[in-house]
Design a protein around this nucleic acid. Structure first.
Lengths: 170, 170
DNA sequence: TATTGTTATACTCTATAACTATA
DNA sequence: TATAGTTATAGAGTATAACAATA
């Protein structure tokens, strides 16, 4: 790290010499919620680093994936599947459309609705994103056996459904 | 759900009749990052519901726990341990102090620093919060055996450290 | 009456810069 | 020079309300 970068970190409040090892976190490290939050932040950060050259955030990757797998889907359906508010989805989609990855078509049976498709450019992008995502996924699961990785995902899904059955209302 | 509540949900974009089961999410459900995000949102929501009567959010519970276990700690140390920016910690702490749970004392060896302590009211609150947290934790781990719950936390910590060694810089 | 997409808006979270007082 | 706490501020992310066009 350069001296300049170090000074920037200092101004922003980053102090690498302060280890949390000397501080008693009590039962926090043994709580599922705490472990989840820290893990999610770490994974999100690795994702951002991996996808920064594409200017694609996790939620955008999710949206592109769903559109690719379900061409012609309405905006509301995607919102429902991914837990995004209709209102917030508009800006997100505008961005993907302006960049030429997604196209808003007219739905056949409903003049109110848009049918969403990937453009050729969007399909090409997905080829790149899938490769990047593979590398990202391998990295964050590096310390896990195949069985444990599958078990982890199964347990996470189990938590999701047991703790909140109305996940779509977020 | 009342009709009024249902209409409020509708205005806000919530549509319970749209199940994501009919939509192909591709590989998303099999990605650690996606599963983590959904699980974390669900756990956060259960936490908020459980702690709403105390007006305590997850990060506040974390801060109170660390202060309780390490009386006299400086603000910077808590920030470092929990991954909170110094600047953002001020407002958070002001809130806990104004409500009478935490006290800013003067540090003995450093006139710049504050030494943080729980007040009696804060200690009493923690008795209640620990009970609420026990119920919350039992609920989100309801579908997991003791061994699997421990394994889950171990795996989450493993992800955290392998994906990002500079977690404190967040 | 209800739904789809949209705009406007507000609130929380997170991030950086810069200041002061001390070290 | 560096650190502790603070203020100001800007950017995400997420929430609700309300409207026009259409069902």
């Amino acid at each position: 790290m350069t001296k300049r970068a170090k000074q920037a970190h200092q101004r922003a409040g980053y102090n690498p010499s302060l280890s949390s090892e000397i501080i008693d976190l009590g039962h926090l490290p043994n709580l599922v919620g705490y472990a989840l939050r820290r893990a999610q932040l770490a994974v999100f950060r690795d994702f951002s680093k991996t996808f920064s050259k594409f200017k694609v955030r996790p939620v955008q990757y999710g949206v592109l994936t769903v559109i690719e797998r379900n061409p012609g889907l309405k905006q509301t359906h995607i919102c429902s599947a991914l837990g995004i508010r209709r209102a917030n989805f508009v800006t997100l989609l505008n961005n993907l459309e302006h960049r030429g990855f997604v196209k808003r078509g007219r739905a056949i049976n409903d003049q109110r609705a848009n049918a969403l498709y990937l453009t050729e450019k969007g399909k090409q992008l997905m080829l790149e994103l899938r490769k990047a995502n593979k590398a990202h996924e391998d990295r964050i699961a590096a310390g896990l056996s195949r069985e444990n990785r599958d078990l982890l995902i199964q347990m996470l899904n189990n938590i999701k459904f047991s703790a909140d059955s109305s996940i779509l209302s977020q």
